[in-house]
Amino acid sequence: MSRSVAAKALARSYTGERTLTFLVGLLALAGGALALVVGFGWLGEFRGRRPLLDPIATAWLGAHATPARIAAIVLGVLLFVAGLRWAARSLRPEPRPDLDLDRTEGAELVVTAAAIAGAVQADAERLDGVSRARVRAVGSRTSPALRITLWLREGTDLKGVWADLDTQVLTRARESLGLPALPAAVRLELDTSPAKRVR
């Protein structure tokens, strides 16, 4: 399980959100840096003393009031719609893909995401040292992936669990589903031992 494979399984649909947030932050940083440069007078004393709202820009906006208002309203509506789409996309539930094993008409065979997750979870819980497991099938119908969380008992051989997970559980899942690759992101946690009573 390479890093790129795990990254594919971990990545939700956050690429667009991260890119947009990065660009907005970069724009804000550039604006702040420009304001500091002008304010310190590095572009000339005259520019540093000018009011925040440039008189030339104010005069131009006054002369072209109607087009400026229309442009401001259009820009505001566009930003509002883009913000709503961004929020809706971020809040929507993550897809759990069902897998089409056979698309022959009249003999379709579909394995649900819950069935995939349940089978892999049952296999993972049989591994030595694993007390419990949680598995989620994520991604798309054409490119499914798994997110696996394993809770390990104290003193478990980590390398052994990792090797067994790869050779037994994930290999079996790939072969059963007929997939050339099944990316998986694995999270390992130490299971809490039952509290001991002090007398």
Rank of each mutant, 00 (worst) to 15 (best):
S2W: 12
R3S: 14
R3T: 15
S4I: 14
V5R: 09
A6T: 10
A6V: 05
A7M: 13
K8L: 14
A9R: 00
A11L: 09
R12F: 04
Y14V: 13
T15E: 06
T15F: 15
G16K: 02
R18V: 10
L20Y: 11
L20N: 13
T21C: 15
L23K: 10
L23Y: 14
L23F: 13
G25R: 08
G25D: 07
L26Y: 10
L27S: 05
A30Y: 00
A30S: 06
A30Q: 06
G32C: 10
L34N: 01
A35W: 09
L36M: 14
F40S: 09
F40M: 02
G41F: 03
G44I: 01
G44Q: 08
E45N: 14
F46R: 11
G48F: 10
R50P: 03
P51C: 10
P51D: 04
P55R: 07
I56E: 11
I56C: 05
I56S: 07
A57M: 13
L61W: 04
G62P: 01
A63I: 02
H64R: 14
H64V: 12
T66C: 07
T66V: 13
A71V: 08
A72K: 05
I73C: 00
I73T: 05
V74L: 06
L75W: 06
G76K: 07
L78C: 07
L78N: 03
L79R: 06
A82S: 14
G83Q: 12
L84Y: 09
L84D: 07
R85F: 08
W86L: 06
A87D: 13
A88E: 06
R89D: 11
S90F: 04
S90N: 12
S90G: 10
P93Q: 04
P95V: 01
P95N: 01
D98N: 01
D98M: 08
L99Y: 13
L99W: 02
D100C: 00
L101M: 03
L101D: 03
D102I: 11
T104Y: 09
T104Q: 15
A107Y: 05
L109N: 04
L109R: 11
L109C: 06
V111A: 06
V111I: 11
T112V: 00
T112R: 13
A113M: 06
A114P: 00
A115M: 00
A119R: 02
A119V: 08
A122G: 05
D123V: 05
D123W: 00
A124Q: 02
A124G: 14
A124K: 00
E125R: 08
R126Y: 05
G129F: 07
G129E: 00
V130I: 15
A133M: 03
R134D: 04
V138A: 12
S140Q: 12
R141D: 12
R141F: 06
S143F: 07
L146D: 04
R147K: 13
R147W: 05
I148K: 01
W151Y: 12
G155C: 07
D157W: 02
D157M: 04
L158R: 13
L158G: 08
V161T: 01
A163E: 12
A163R: 13
D164M: 04
D166F: 01
Q168C: 14
Q168T: 08
T171N: 10
R172S: 08
E175M: 10
E175R: 15
G178I: 10
L179P: 07
P180D: 03
A181D: 15
L182S: 03
L188D: 09
L188Y: 15
D191E: 15
D191R: 13
P194F: 10
P194I: 09
R197L: 14
R197H: 12
V198G: 03
R199T: 11
